[in-house]
Simulated scan of single mutants.
Amino acid sequence: MAKILILYYSSYGHVGALAEAIAEGARDAGGDVTIGRVPETAPKEIVESAGFSVNEDHPVVEPDDLSDYDAIIVGAPTRYGRLSSQMASFWDRTGGLWGKGTLIGKVGASFTSTATQHGGQETTQFSILSNLLHHGMIIVGLDYGFDGQMSTDAIIGGSPYGASTVAGGDGSRTPHEIDLNGAKYLGAKVARTAAKQCA
C-alpha cells in the first residue's frame, strides 16, 4: 500500500476542501493517506485581521517528514500567479532532502485555487511542480480521462497540470462538484501510480 501525503496551505478553506477530496480518491484507490499543512508564515495580526481559517485536524508537516511517503500531492492558493509564500517557504527548506536525493522517484502532483477563472491556476501549478521536478519526482497530472474539466456549463477549475477551483474575488464560492470530482480523480491516479512504483 502506497503512503501518500497531501501537503497543502489554505487561507480560507478552498484548497483544504480540495485536499479532502483528493484524500477520498486516493483512499478509494487503496492509498494510505495523510493530510498535512505547512506552517503559517504570515504575522499573527495579518492572519487574524484577514480571517484566515486553519484546519487544526491536519497536523503541521516539516520537510524531513517528506521522506516517509511514496507520493506527495501539493496544494497552495495562487498569489499573483504563483504559489503562496507559505508553501514556497516550505520548499525553500528542503535543500537537505535535495542534496541527498531523498525524493527522487517519488510521485508528485499539484492542486490550487484562484479568485478568478484566469487568476493564474496553471502558472501556480507550474510553480508547485517545478519544486517537485527539481527533486526528481515523477509528475502525475489531471489527464482528460477526467472529462469534467472540459465542461463549459459552469465556472470550474481543472487542467492537465492538476486539480483546481475558483474561489471568487471575496472567497465566497465553494468548490464546484466538478472540481471536487477532479480532485478525487487526481488522488486515485496518484495512488495507483505510487502503488506501481512501490511494487
Score class of each variant (00 low, 15 high):
Leu129Thr: 02
Asp179Lys: 01
Gly158Phe: 07
Arg173Ser: 08
Met137Glu: 02
Gly105His: 03
Leu142Thr: 05
Gly101Trp: 04
Tyr185Cys: 00
Asp170Phe: 09
Asp70Tyr: 02
Thr41Trp: 07
Gly108Leu: 00
Lys100Thr: 13
His118Leu: 13
Gly25Thr: 01
Asp64Trp: 10
Ser110His: 05
Leu5Glu: 00
Ala71Pro: 00
Val54Lys: 10
Ser110Cys: 12
Ile155Met: 08
Leu83Ser: 08
Val61Phe: 03
Val60Asp: 06
Ala50Asp: 11
Asp92Ala: 12
Val190Met: 00
Phe90Asn: 03
Asp68Met: 04
Thr112Asp: 04
Gly81Glu: 07
Ser172Ile: 11
Val74Trp: 02
Asp147Thr: 15
Ala115Trp: 12
Ile104Gly: 03
Asp92Val: 08
Val33His: 00
Pro77Ala: 09
Ala50Glu: 15
Thr114Cys: 11
Gly145His: 11
Gln121Trp: 07
Gly75Leu: 06
Ala163Ile: 05
Gly101Tyr: 04
Val60Glu: 10
Asp70Thr: 01
Val60Trp: 07
Leu133Phe: 09
Asp68Lys: 08
Ile178Gln: 03
Ile104Glu: 08
Val107Gly: 00
Pro160Asn: 14
Val61Met: 06
Thr78Ile: 11
Gly187Cys: 09
Tyr8Asn: 09
Asn181Asp: 15
Gly108Asn: 00
Ala17Tyr: 03
Leu83Glu: 10
Leu180Tyr: 05
Lys196Asn: 08
Ala26Asn: 01
Pro43Lys: 05
Arg192Leu: 07
Trp91Ile: 06
Ala167Cys: 11
Pro160Ser: 14
Phe52Met: 14
Gly119Pro: 06
Pro59Met: 11
Leu66Val: 01
Gln149Val: 14
Thr102His: 01
Gln86Met: 07
Ser10Cys: 09
Glu122Met: 08
Ala191Glu: 02
Asp65Tyr: 06
Arg93Gln: 14
Ile22Lys: 01
Ser172Gln: 11
Arg173His: 13
Val38Ser: 03
Gly25Val: 01
Thr193Cys: 04
Leu132Glu: 07
Ser10Pro: 06
Gln149Gly: 15
Pro175Gln: 09
Tyr144Phe: 13
Gly187Pro: 05
Ile73Arg: 02
Gly101Ile: 04
Pro63Ile: 08
Ala109Cys: 09
Asp92Glu: 13
His135Ile: 01
Ile35Ser: 02
Ser172Leu: 09
Glu20Asp: 15
Ala23Arg: 01
Gly105Thr: 00
Thr94Glu: 06
Ala191Ser: 15
Glu62Pro: 03
Gln86Cys: 07
Gly105Asn: 09
Arg79Ser: 13
Leu83Asp: 00
Ile73Ser: 00
Ala195Met: 12
Gly148Met: 08
Asp147Pro: 04
Gly51Cys: 10
Gly182Gln: 05
Gly36Val: 04
Ala71Thr: 01
